[in-house]
Amino acid sequence: MVKMDQNGHIYWVKGDTFYFNLIAQENSTPIDFTNWHIKFIVYDHNDDIKFILDETNGIDLSTPGLIKFSKDLSTINIERGKYKYDLIVTRANGIIETWLNNKSFMVE
């Protein structure tokens, strides 16, 4: 199971499929993610990267207005505990934005 609280902190039960959706709109209109790139980076408190998801590995951008995360993380070497994550997007026009920064990623 994956849960995200209202502050953007994620809770994941180790061994479960990492599956959840983020709704993305601008001015109440679903974002068309054609030619966008998205990175979801999880790292420890020493800033060592534990894993990265992107549109070639666990992130599906095919539905306007949705960022779909779906990845079997059982093979990723991450222990139970508290980590951090960033969600970084690159728009089709090349503008890079960090939408979520230094948020908690709890592995239960």
Results as ranks from 00 to 15, higher is better:
Met4Ile: 14
Thr29Cys: 08
Phe69Gly: 03
Ser62Ile: 06
Val42Glu: 00
Tyr11Ala: 12
Ile59Gln: 00
Asn46Lys: 14
Leu87Trp: 03
Tyr19Asp: 13
Glu97Leu: 05
Leu22Arg: 11
Lys39Arg: 15
Ile59Cys: 08
Phe105Pro: 00
Gln6Glu: 15
Phe18Pro: 00
Asp86Ser: 06
Arg91Tyr: 15
Phe20Ser: 07
Asp86Asn: 15
Asp60Trp: 04
Phe18Lys: 07
Gln25Asp: 14
Asn27Trp: 09
Gly15Thr: 10
Gln6His: 12
Ile88Ser: 05
Val89Asn: 00
Ile96Glu: 12
Met4Val: 15
Phe51Val: 11
Asp16Trp: 13
Phe18Glu: 09
Lys14Met: 07
Val13Lys: 14
Arg80Asp: 12
Leu53Cys: 07
Asp48Phe: 10
Asn102Arg: 03
Ile52Asn: 05
Glu97Phe: 05
Ile67Thr: 03
Phe105Gln: 00
Ile95Cys: 07
Ile78Gly: 09
Gly15Ile: 08
Gly94Asn: 14
Thr63Met: 06
Asp60Asn: 15
Asp72Gly: 07
Asn27Cys: 12
Asp47Tyr: 13
Asp44Ser: 04
Trp12Pro: 01
Asp48Met: 01
Asp5Lys: 01
His45Cys: 01
Ala92His: 14
Phe40Lys: 04
Met4Gln: 13
Trp36Pro: 06
Asp60Phe: 08
Ile38Leu: 13
Pro30Val: 02
Val89Trp: 03
Met106Cys: 03
Phe105Glu: 00
Asp72Thr: 04
Trp12Thr: 01
Tyr11Arg: 13
Ala24Gln: 09
Lys3Cys: 11
Asn93Phe: 10
Lys68Ala: 14
Phe51Arg: 09
Asp32Thr: 03
Ile95Trp: 02
Pro30Arg: 13
Leu87Pro: 00
Ser74Ile: 04
Ile88Arg: 10
Thr90Ser: 08
Thr34Gln: 14
Asp72Phe: 08
Ile76Asn: 05
Leu61Tyr: 09
Val89Glu: 09
Val2Met: 13
Lys68Glu: 11
Asp16Val: 00
Asp54Glu: 06
Trp36Ala: 09
His45Tyr: 15
Leu61Pro: 01
Asp54Asn: 15
Leu73Phe: 05
Ile95Val: 14
Asp5Leu: 04
Lys84Met: 12
Asp60Tyr: 09
